[in-house]
Design a protein around this nucleic acid. Structure first.
Length: 306
DNA sequence: AAGAGTCTCAACCGCGATGAT
DNA sequence: CATCATCGCGGTTGAGACTCT
């Protein structure tokens, strides 16, 4: 079928938009709305094709667009939804108010994808890269643990001076083991709330910052699960058997990580400490596979996108 | 200071889906 | 049902910004 030419083949302008063009487009849409993108540029006095106008409006000029860094929640939502939906950027964007599919796509390709790769996770399948597992199970185990510890790390970040993160970045490359994922009786990964569980000297506590390279420390009262819930990470929580929230409602990584069903002994409490010396490659793979089985909360009705 | 390399993201391209005729 | 016009999506590009040496 014939396609409408777009671009300089039709004498239309291409490339970056000027402020004048933006103003024309905004003015026109504010007055007339955006019904027919085909005729809009002509009516608005723009030397652009409708496609270009639509893109400019939806990706940049729309008043409800949220600018700035992606929050941690947004980042997690993207990862979770991508694990289910794949590269359905528009569907993912539909769950992130103020974010465009293009923005999410860019963020995925420039940040999240790299982070997952660095962790030995295939960004397409969201499973551990078996080639890397074969090469270095130890390294991958560490990386996966880091993934699980993401939230823990964020919390610890609050106790550490920024300079520590540099130290941690360096350590990541040295394949140091740092793991403190704990599981409660429901085999949900929870982060031990007792600060005493951490090494007494935080300066010695090697903290990988794989997922947190862009992390901006949040206020101490920041609640990972939203203001309606007591944070899992709040060290002030006294119960050691803390159940974060109904996993079906959770958006957090903590809840989306599940204990490997093949594990002969349930991982619970402090015994769940994953020790490289006591974990076989099979166990590691199983763990890795399960750790990446994201639970999609009910509020994220996948059927909406299918 | 400057050149090279890398990263970011706005914008473009091409295709499939959908609706109108 | 076939054809055409338009829309919207996902992949890709490339210019500018940034970082490194």
């Amino acid at each position: 079928m014939g396609r409408a030419l777009c671009g300089d083949k039709n004498g239309l302008k291409k490339g970056p938009w000027t402020p004048e063009e933006d103003k024309k487009l905004i003015d026109y849409i504010q007055k007339h709305g955006y019904g027919n993108w085909r005729t809009l540029p002509k009516n608005a006095g723009l030397q652009r094709c409708g496609k270009s106008c639509r893109l400019r409006w939806t990706n940049y000029l729309r008043p409800d667009i949220k600018r700035g860094r992606f929050s941690f929640e947004e980042e997690e939502t993207i990862i979770q939804l991508h694990s289910v939906l794949g590269n359905k950027w528009s569907a993912i964007a539909a769950r992130l108010p103020g974010r465009t599919d293009n923005e999410i796509k860019n963020y995925w390709n420039t940040h999240i994808r790299k982070i997952l790769l660095r962790m030995g996770i295939d960004p397409v399948t969201h499973t551990p890269r078996l080639d890397l597992l074969g090469l270095s199970s130890l390294h991958n185990q560490y990386l996966i643990q880091s993934f699980a510890n993401h939230e823990l790390l964020r919390n610890v970040d609050q106790y550490q001076p920024l300079t520590q993160s540099n130290h941690c970045h360096a350590q990541v490359e040295e394949t140091q083991i740092c793991s403190v994922p704990f599981y409660n009786e429901e085999q949900q990964l929870v982060m031990e709330p007792n600060v005493n569980q951490f090494p007494s000297n935080f300066n010695d506590y090697v903290m990988p910052s794989i997922l947190t390279e862009d992390y901006v420390p949040l206020p101490p009262q920041y609640n990972y699960y939203g203001s309606d819930y007591q944070t899992v990470m709040d060290p002030s929580i006294e119960t050691s058997n803390f159940h974060p929230i109904n996993s079906n409602q959770s958006l957090g990584l903590g809840s989306v990580v599940s204990t490997p069903s093949s594990s002969p002994a349930p991982l619970n409490s402090n015994s769940a400490y994953l020790n490289s010396s006591s974990t076989t490659e099979d166990e590691t793979e199983s763990y890795c596979t399960n750790i990446l089985k994201f639970e999609i909360p009910d509020i994220l009705d996948v059927n909406d996108f299918m």
